[in-house]
Nucleic acid binder design. Structure first.
Lengths: 220, 220
DNA sequence: GTCTATATAATGATAGAC
DNA sequence: GTCTATCATTATATAGAC
């Protein structure tokens, strides 16, 4: 029987998996229940465990599927929430939105998806830095890999706290034009002119006024 | 009766609250159960709801308590996980470790503690930037508040992904000397020399080699 | 493969003895 | 205030009819 009369021609395991990705992207695995996922997929609870063995089996299947899709689709990787600037890719590919939300939720909670994604993004960023250096838009670094790791972590912070950043900057969404203008201007300001006036690895810093207030980028 | 013979002279509500902060710092509120928290506090389950009404009441009490403590102790704010460089404060004040873990968990999941902490850290960072500018160790910015917001978000990303960063940099803990040396060197490298060679708000960027690979710090 | 019905365990919350 | 015992609900997982 080939799902005659159904309003969704995908195979049942795929429907359940996609429903799980969509629901977990909104609520996370901890709050998600097998019943809710089954309801979203339009199947009874029993089928979930029939096809995936257990809730944890479903989670592994979702993680593997997302990791596979991220490996195939560079656009999905770029819109994975590791750099807020790149989230606009989703607007042209709305079918990727549930998976992007699932990835963002995975980044919050950690696990294999977060690890795999972070590493992929580091590799891509390192390559991008080299291309930018070749093109002359960016300088080169002593430790390009470590620099890519740092930049991905920074981008992840900006992405995870995007709503908070937007609110403090006077907007509701970081990608709203007025809010993003201020955000982008600040980013450019930070990276076009040196932040620190001295390199503490070459000469000692002048003593700050208040030793109890270490500068955020100070070294121990 | 004043807890005669008990091995903990604190009042019972405080014991339950501290046990909740400790347990939730490790597992998060979703996975934490009233029974586990009560067991850690050495009291039966009934007492939890007697003193706090419900699990959600206990959560509100913990959040309020942490926010209050963060307002009183600047060191706790600085070691709240929003800048990995500052976590060393915990080593001198190990009694703050459970609350620091609770704060880190709150940052992952959002909520009132995360919002309050982020805003406090922005204010402190903005003041610190001004002090550093006065001392001559840092330049000044067109939009100091937005710059503080951006730097706190970046620091939060570095903190939340600290274990991942450490692993990719060849270590196990970001604060291990060898690992932190590489991390610190990269941070200094990033902030002592300009990253971008052109300011796109003043002149157009040269076309990159691959238009599908936007540079991480590009503007829309 | 799909469904209904159920088994088993754990949860938040409460009642009542002391 | 503190404890034991229990309620009602909900979760995951499974058994068995079709």
């Amino acid at each position: 029987m080939l799902n005659v009369g159904s309003n969704d021609e995908r195979a049942t395991p795929a429907r359940i998996r996609d429903a799980a990705i969509s629901y977990v992207g909104k609520h996370g695995w901890d709050r998600a229940t097998s019943r809710q996922i089954a309801a979203e997929a339009g199947v009874p609870v029993g089928l979930v465990n029939y096809h995936f063995g257990s809730k944890d089996g479903l989670r592994r299947a979702c993680d593997d599927w997302v990791i596979e899709r991220v490996g195939e689709d560079k656009g999905l990787l770029l819109s994975s929430g590791l750099f807020p600037q790149l989230d606009t890719y989703i607007e042209d590919h709305p079918e990727l939105r549930p998976m992007s939300a699932y990835i963002a939720m995975s980044l919050r909670h950690g696990g294999s998806v977060a690890d795999h994604l972070f590493e992929s993004m580091v590799t891509l960023t390192k390559d991008t830095l080299e291309l930018a250096a070749d093109a002359g838009t960016m300088r080169r670094f002593d430790d390009p890999y470590a620099m890519a790791v740092l930049l991905v972590a920074y981008g992840a912070g900006a992405s995870l706290f995007g709503p908070t950043i937007a609110r403090l900057l006077g907007g509701t969404d970081l990608l709203d034009p007025a809010t993003y203008a201020r955000y982008g201007r600040t980013t450019i300001d930070l990276f076009t002119k040196p932040l620190l006036t001295h390199d503490p690895y070459q000469q000692s810093l002048p003593t700050p006024n208040d030793p109890d207030l270490p500068t955020p980028k100070d070294t121990p």
